[in-house]
Simulated assay, not measured.
Amino acid sequence: MDISRQALVDTAVGVFGEAGWDGIGPQTLVRRLGVAPGAVYRHFKSRDALMAAVLSRVQEELFVHIEASCPVVPGESGLGMLLRLGEAYCRFWETRPRAYLDILRPPTATLLPAQGESARELGRVTARVIKQFEVLLLLGRLDGSVRTEATAETARRIVSVLVGTVHLHLTPSRTRAKNLTAMLTALVGARTPVRAA
């Protein structure tokens, strides 16, 4: 039985959601789909290539959610947009398997190879998320809603706060938005209080 690349990726994404990175591998797919080992290698030359395809799919799902959840609101402050974006990321992760948080953890916390296609894909995902917050920090500096010292490093800290908040369940879901607003506002040093969206 031959199987499509799409079916392999779909199954691997499901395995990733259940077992994280260590669950993804050609042998797992062979067992799950009942195909010959060669079927996986016809589409993916290595486990690393398979993991890169999974990351690509998860990234696509993530950014579709973010675009749908965070439309541009004319006249909104940079800080207001940043808070809404942070909330959208938290909602995404809370409604997905815990393994989805692995896409924004430092590479040493995952089982991805230090070099390779999956590491490059992971770097692209992380850079894209951080860049979104960098842009909003820039807008916030321009409109005065965040302090002028907020930099690219601040954007990385914001992402760490979001991942940590969801991973550690620092607050119950019903109060998370309020607490997240307070944490991010303190981090970026807003000059005036901004209410959560």
Rank of each mutant, 00 (worst) to 15 (best):
A127R: 13
H65E: 01
L162Q: 03
T151P: 00
F44N: 08
M81T: 04
M1C: 09
V159R: 06
T126A: 07
V40M: 01
A88T: 01
P71L: 08
A155L: 04
T154K: 14
L162E: 07
P172C: 00
T151W: 00
Q27A: 13
L79Q: 03
P193C: 05
L111Q: 08
F63L: 04
S145E: 06
G78H: 06
G116F: 05
V54G: 03
Q6Y: 03
L137E: 05
M51A: 13
R96E: 10
Q132Y: 08
V15P: 12
V15K: 04
P71E: 06
Q27K: 09
S77N: 10
E134W: 04
L85E: 08
R96L: 01
M183W: 13
G75Y: 02
C70L: 04
H167Q: 13
V72T: 12
A36K: 14
R57S: 10
H65Y: 00
R42V: 05
I158V: 15
V73C: 02
L111V: 07
Y100T: 09
D22E: 14
P26Y: 02
G17I: 11
L79P: 12
D102L: 14
V30Y: 01
E60S: 13
C70E: 01
Q27V: 04
T151V: 00
V146L: 11
T126E: 01
S145M: 06
L29D: 04
